[in-house]
Design a protein around this nucleic acid. Structure first.
Lengths: 344, 344
DNA sequence: TTGAAAGCGCTAACAA
DNA sequence: TTGTTAGCGCTTTCAA
């Protein structure tokens, strides 16, 4: 049986009201009483029952996060870092974090509704926005506190943090063009994800800007996984006139692309250039190290959490729509186009 | 203002008790009343306040998980899959999952205490046990429901799921010995982690069993990261008499080891053999594909969650100490030792 | 400076 | 079959 405020009150010979006030540092309690109550409470190992506090205060001091997972072998180095950012910031604010894992779809929406309607959380973090995002629509419609990692198509009158994928992609393509590449392929993330559109726009704009041809056969769609990057790259390299550079919509796919290229004897960074997006820790340690676009994912997690809690507390939030400029990280995988290829 | 049971009661003209019973499908409510109540509740968009239910029932229907994170760039493909397993199983049972992220140490213990004493969770999952594990000691001492992923040194009178790392490592070393390797190095995980000891024992036993020398200079300690595997391998390869095979304590380190070897021109799977442990999705897609020991991490997550919930509900749990046999996955990274090396 | 009392939203024993 | 009542553990009026 856990010790309650009643037990403490009985022990110190005061009312539970006084104990509550002493513990919450109210002014109208004598310092002797305060000291006594605190000592006894500590001795007895008293910790307030959070559930009772919540019911009384009508808030949960908890934020929710529904991770969109795809299948059992869901394994994304991106999310773990993101989660660490959110988790640490949330704890720093004294909030708890309620996590669900659901594949996009009905069950996912159900998870959102349960959290909202059961008043389990005071706010939600929506991650990896879709172009048409039912989660954002829902939360916006009912006016429930939330922040999103990513934008959506249409009106942007909600709080979000996003990375300017268009600019990031432009930098990447520009860099590859400077290296002498003219046939640049792009493996886009699933097109329903909002950032896919963003990066695609950047890719196309930069190609045009650099005076390069937009060959439709060099743009394929992948699934953000290593395997998918591998498969799509095999296809690209089997073309009659294969690309000399491949940009993948995320690092995981880029790593898969590297493997596909290496398997057929190409030297990545010499015979072919490959680049990714995210700058996951492994990018730096790939062989060769992967050129990519850095997203400060841990920081973004912290920002989102802090922003959401300020919104919940109705404090000054500052900028509600944050668009971060990503930075190009040039490593060896995007080397100069070789003579033989250039001649081809 | 969210709709409460009171609102529903007023609307149907019944007492809140009747509404509660109708909604919870008690036998002693007429089917007409039940139907009416349910219809009205649905119309009004009523969802029970979980906090109030919890306070009344004196349980949270929530399980807790404190992820041990190391620094901001915490990025482990292992954990995301593990989390998916736990999350999905937990949701299937109608439980919620409360997640914290803390580096091992005082703050971590504090997170455990807060969850327990604030009655925020009905049980906890302890992940990545240490040889001497204060989390396990604490939970055991106070008799709070928990399950652990991994064993500890000493008495094992608590529920856990673990993978038999000793057997896994034996298989791996045996395999390498069969490939003709005699100088096999081992990059061990941090020695305070329980599974490190386990795998080390397997490594040493298998070496002896195979009649191979245990050269102390070939056993080094890494930090489970890609970077660490890379650095330790550089050191191993710089030895006067370097190993022909390197076993890493996890896949991330093995991937780092591969890079270090490749950087100095070694062909992994030909000039040198490299193997890992875990079988993360990326292992299959490494270049060359990584020989490793498979841990069914998603399944382990599900098992732990199911086991914990049964313990909480005081149901039949079945086997409380589960030791899974891992399986060797032979891929190309552990090829035969080449002639030149064998002669050296 | 303290305590009594009400009430957060719900469930459940008991009575009718 | 239904309603009354009590109470989960806490905070917060209000009164003393």
């Amino acid at each position: 049986m856990p010790v309650t405020i009643k037990d403490v009150a009985r022990r110190v010979g005061k009312s539970i009201t006084t104990v509550s006030r002493a513990l919450n540092d109210y002014d109208d309690v004598s310092s002797e009483t305060k000291a006594l109550v605190r000592r006894v409470a500590a001795e007895m190992g008293y910790t307030p029952n959070r559930t009772a506090q919540r019911l009384q205060k009508r808030r949960s001091d908890t934020i929710g996060l529904v991770l969109p997972t795809y299948g059992p072998r869901f394994s994304d180095p991106f999310f773990s870092e993101f989660l660490a950012g959110i988790g640490n910031q949330t704890a720093d604010f004294g909030y708890d974090l309620l996590v669900s894992t659901r594949a996009p779809g009905d069950e996912e929406m159900e998870a959102y509704r349960r959290k909202v309607q059961g008043r389990q959380v005071d706010g939600l973090i929506v991650v990896r926005t879709r172009q048409q995002d039912p989660r954002v629509d829902y939360l916006r419609r009912i006016g429930f506190p939330f922040v999103a990692f990513g934008r959506v198509q249409g009106t942007l009158d909600f709080p979000f943090v996003d990375v300017d994928g268009e600019q990031g992609m432009r930098q990447l393509v520009r860099h590859l063009a400077e290296q002498g590449h003219r046939r640049i392929a792009y493996i886009t993330p699933p097109s329903n994800l909002n950032f896919a559109q963003d990066r695609m726009a950047g890719f196309q704009a930069a190609m045009v800007e650099q005076g390069l041809a937009l060959d439709p056969s060099l743009v394929v769609e992948g699934e953000l996984t290593h395997r998918s990057g591998y498969q799509q790259t095999q296809r690209l390299l089997a073309l009659a006139d294969p690309p000399t550079a491949i940009v993948a919509g995320n690092d995981l796919m880029a790593l898969g692309a590297m493997r596909a290229a290496q398997e057929i004897g190409l030297r990545v960074g010499a015979d072919i250039a490959i680049a990714g997006f995210d700058n996951i820790p492994m990018a730096e340690h790939a062989h060769p190290p992967l050129t990519t676009v850095d997203q400060p994912i841990y920081t973004i997690g912290r920002m989102l959490s802090a922003m959401l809690i300020r919104i919940i507390r109705q404090e000054e939030v500052g900028e509600q729509q944050v668009l971060l400029q990503p930075s190009l990280v040039v490593r060896q995988s995007s080397g100069l186009v070789t003579q033989s290829k250039e001649g081809g």
